[in-house]
Design a protein around this nucleic acid. Structure first.
Lengths: 204, 204
DNA sequence: TGACAAACGGAACACCGCTCCGTATTTAAT
DNA sequence: ATTAAATACGGAGCGGTGTTCCGTTTGTCA
């Protein structure tokens, strides 16, 4: 159900792709990344096309749905964030690794203004997006989580998916782009996991 | 800075208000409430006007800004939620009262699909809305919070405003209208406050 | 080199929030 | 009851979206 977006960022197996098409596709991804970061995911399509030096028709040729463009832009950064989890696991105690990655995730979301809102905002075009996010990030968080539980750093019985969503929501920066609030609240959430870690782990 | 919307729902002190104007205002509030509940706060203005049996001009006469209509619709429910805080404080221990009210707040937000997103979504038209929410809800939460701190149920040093925002974000129901997730995550957040309650209450 | 398929670009369409102003309705004075 | 003024109404219209369509241009391959 995650649909097909095989590898739009690199040239696929078929050499049939015309050179200008590939060039424009890259330009679009680059422009979209910049525009999204500055104006949010709701930025006008025309602005992205203009910045990429192409017409809107070209944009829609490559990304039939607006959400397709957003998907493509965030895939790579998503991967980077997921990879950070395994790295943090190597350089921290389980509990701290979890806390550190949560903070890292705040940064990731904060840089994508408006994305979190779009994700949970009813628009069916965006519905596939959180699923992909989860699919990519769940393994990373699951590992951190189970390791921390095994070490007795946090309580057991927390669904990684749910925790992921919760962190994502708390991470959204305020209108002034403030990330400190998100950091504090996510920290608080993680502390919630630490509350009664070893004591009542078996019960509830 | 909360502007003037003295009592748009009832007929004001001045009998100068024309009968048809009052009638249309009521119809608009009624229609808006229904449309917001079913289609979210981003529902088209024309749809609300049509359902109320008036023209869009009439709608904008009564509510110059789209946000004004939203404000008017949610004011009363806001008050009810704020009042619940003081009531819960009478029938629970401080810590439990806080937790219970947080859950009650989840219900409140869940019933207003899309509102939380709009609140934190950059649109300057909605910027006044969270301020009003805070102004109404902060006293309630502050009381619950300080009482719980005084009783040693939770840690000290948490800003009511920030906690309020965090709860609001976690409360947003999923695309399927599921509120259980929000409940769990808010509960987790409150447990975060309980983590190390008495131990380091004096420091930081 | 030439011809064809593929991609391009932007005008055009449908829909949005919001404004403006001629028309209809209510109110108040006579 | 009549009439005049004030007030509210309604919807056409404006500027801005996302998206589609198609004549034109460009790359590719024989």
């Amino acid at each position: 159900m995650t649909e097909d977006l095989p590898d739009q960022t690199e040239q696929g197996k078929k050499p049939r792709v015309r050179a200008d098409a590939q060039r424009n596709l890259d330009a679009l991804l680059l422009a979209a990344k910049a525009v999204f970061a500055s104006a949010g995911v709701d930025a006008p399509v025309r602005e992205i096309a203009e910045r990429a030096g192409v017409g809107v028709g070209t944009l829609y040729r490559h990304f039939p749905q607006r959400a397709d463009l957003i998907k493509a832009v965030f895939r790579r950064e998503l991967d980077a964030c997921a990879d950070a989890a395994t790295q943090l696991a190597h350089t921290n105690t389980p509990g701290d690794a979890l806390a550190a990655w949560a903070q890292r995730f705040v940064d990731f979301i904060s840089a994508k203004r408006g994305l979190a809102d779009a994700l949970h905002s009813g628009d069916p075009a965006y519905e596939a997006l959180p699923a992909y996010f989860d699919a990519r990030l769940r393994p990373a968080l699951t590992e951190l989580l189970s390791a921390a539980v095994a070490a007795g750093d946090i309580r057991a019985g927390t669904d990684p998916d749910e925790l992921l969503r919760a962190i994502a929501r708390l991470s959204a920066p305020g209108p002034d782009g403030d990330t400190a609030l998100g950091r504090r609240m996510v920290g608080l959430l993680i502390d919630g996991l630490r509350y009664g870690a070893n004591a009542g782990a078996d019960k509830s």
